[in-house]
Design a protein around this nucleic acid. Structure first.
Lengths: 344, 344
DNA sequence: CTGAAAGCGCTTACAG
DNA sequence: CTGAAAGCGCTTACAG
């Protein structure tokens, strides 16, 4: 009793009751009865005793022995952000089919938090990591990858790294949005963005930029160093300038937070969508449909993006060294609603 | 090399390099140098070598030995629901201060899924569980509790069970909402709910019911067996009936999903809030503020509710048998906005 | 067909 | 002050 940590039944308990060795019990319960040519009688006995005793294996012990914890680590920027909580749910669903559990952590776009989370998760024995990398984390990810830790990037990637990833095709996303607005007859189209080295942001900006240029239109990009937690004041100033001074007719907001701040500001300024200005956003929410002018938005096939990432990770875990670098860009869809339709 | 599972540095590696025993390294690294009267010189040597080698302990091994995994399991109904993802984030923050990690799972209000999740989490060695219990899970929770597994309920509770919990005071929530509407001069106040044995739902219904009765007003409760995934059609019918046949002047929606469906329906019916009907909801979102008539809602102090639950759980884990049953009802707040102000 | 033994990486009495 | 040994609950060569 001295070293018995819990009252759960162990392999030994089952072996004792069944009158066989632990080896046998382990083999049978792992479905290796045939492989080890264990007699049907013994196998059945073991199976029954295990069931009677409601035995279930201690995964910690198994994990220590096999080096596989059947656990994966998920690092997002903020689990309470609907985009990432949706991703978390999909990861949960996909991995649970494969008997993996997920531990998660939020980095808040912070490098040292990311580092800390990775450390802790590795110590917890995760078999691999799915990471939404924050700005400046390239070296960290590279090191991880070089240490042979299975890792897959989600939502953002590092072009210089041979680390697998699954992302939205962000370039095409803003291209799609821009083309749509051009087709509607808009010429003065502005982009509200913020300053970032992250691939998703950079790609969104260049998708807009290049599409405008190809159509011989002047670009108007408002890259602001907004306070992510309170972007409204900055956005309000920018919008006021764009609409009153620059005759902007249509605006693309490249993140959800920017869109929300934008809608708030436009309401405050008494600008009517799309009469005064057309609007396109990123990533929808059913709540936007309740807005007086339902918002046109870029739809991310989150499910597909996430499933790919999970598949890559599991493959990598299973194949180890033999796994080869894999990347995937998922195509966006433009959901056209009232907010971007040019009034006649 | 044969049994070396990874290239991470182990206690043994540090001990070898420092030329001391594993015991010593373990003691020093766990801050027990003083306790074991280890010489400052040795302690320093160990500390430095460990740092040089970037040693970090394998928590799986430690967990197996100590029986503590520093891991807690969180079971919500759906992690992608903003309410629960917010809860998850708070739990993450609170537990990480205490060096715990969280594994999560979504039950989808499903008993057998809940059961399965609990099993898996126990096998993963969690030290305790925070559970949002689904309907019919009382026996399951009771069994868990009787097996001495530290468990705390969140958001919902079982009055007959001595299992600790932290919940909103749901009774007072609808009481508050009802009183507010009465003060505004409304008399025909309806409640949109659904059928459930869950404490939170039952309490919300009775809070409304009793408040109406105390004020000698007739109750009008629409308890529908709505399809949670697509409540709109059912809600639309109910609203049409209430407003046109029953002269309902104000409506309380007791969940967020019902509110969203309700707003959609009212839009469709061209009913204007609050001119045609006043509305109060549960749980806000910044997106509701973009609605033409910002919605009055019950604010749940999610942070407080969740922190209490975490505290209870950690206390229970630490105190074991000596922990006594603890419950907490957190008081709601009514955020009054345009949707429930009676037009003059 | 079956079992004894080693070992995963720790911690913890215990002995000296 | 320090180290050898046992043991957490498994799996996996290995021997017979």
């Amino acid at each position: 009793m001295k070293n018995k940590r819990s009252n759960r039944v162990s392999l030994k308990d089952v072996a004792n009751r069944a009158g066989v060795s632990k080896t046998l019990v382990s083999a049978v319960l792992n479905g290796k009865a045939k492989q080890y040519r264990i007699s049907d009688k013994t196998a059945l006995l073991v199976l029954q005793t295990a069931k009677e005793m409601q035995y279930s294996p201690n995964m910690i012990a198994r994990g220590l022995r096999t080096g596989k914890a059947e656990l994966i680590g998920l690092i997002v920027t903020d689990i309470s952000n609907p985009f990432y909580s949706t991703i978390s749910r999909i990861i949960e669903n996909k991995t649970s089919e494969l008997n993996y559990k997920v531990i998660f952590g939020s980095s808040d776009e912070n490098l040292s938090k990311t580092e800390e989370l990775i450390d802790i998760m590795l110590n917890k024995g995760v078999d691999g990591l799915i990471i939404v990398p924050c700005e400046g984390s390239q070296k960290l990810i590279e090191k991880l990858h070089n240490n042979n830790v299975p890792v897959v990037l989600l939502d953002r990637y590092f072009p210089e790294l041979n680390v697998s990833y699954s992302c939205l095709n962000n370039y095409n996303a803003t291209k799609l949005a821009t083309l749509h607005l051009i087709e509607q007859g808009y010429k003065n189209i502005s982009l509200i963005a913020y300053n970032s080295e992250l691939s998703n942001i950079k790609d969104r900006i260049s998708g807009y930029q290049e599409t405008m240029m190809k159509n011989s239109l002047e670009t108007s990009i408002h890259v602001k160093s907004v306070d992510i937690n309170n972007p409204t004041p900055e956005i309000e100033k920018a919008l006021d300038y764009l609409i009153t001074k620059k005759n902007t007719e249509a605006i693309i907001f490249i993140t959800n937070a920017l869109l929300v701040a934008g809608l708030r500001s436009l309401n405050k300024m008494n600008k009517v969508i799309p009469q005064d200005v057309a609007v396109v956003g990123f990533y929808g929410s059913e709540l936007f449909d309740l807005f007086y002018s339902p918002i046109t938005y870029i739809k991310q096939p989150i499910e597909v993006i996430t499933e790919k990432a999970v598949k890559m990770l599991i493959d990598k875990i299973n194949k180890g060294e033999n796994f080869k670098f894999s990347k995937s860009f998922i195509e966006p869809e433009l959901i056209i609603q009232d907010s971007s339709i040019r009034p006649k």
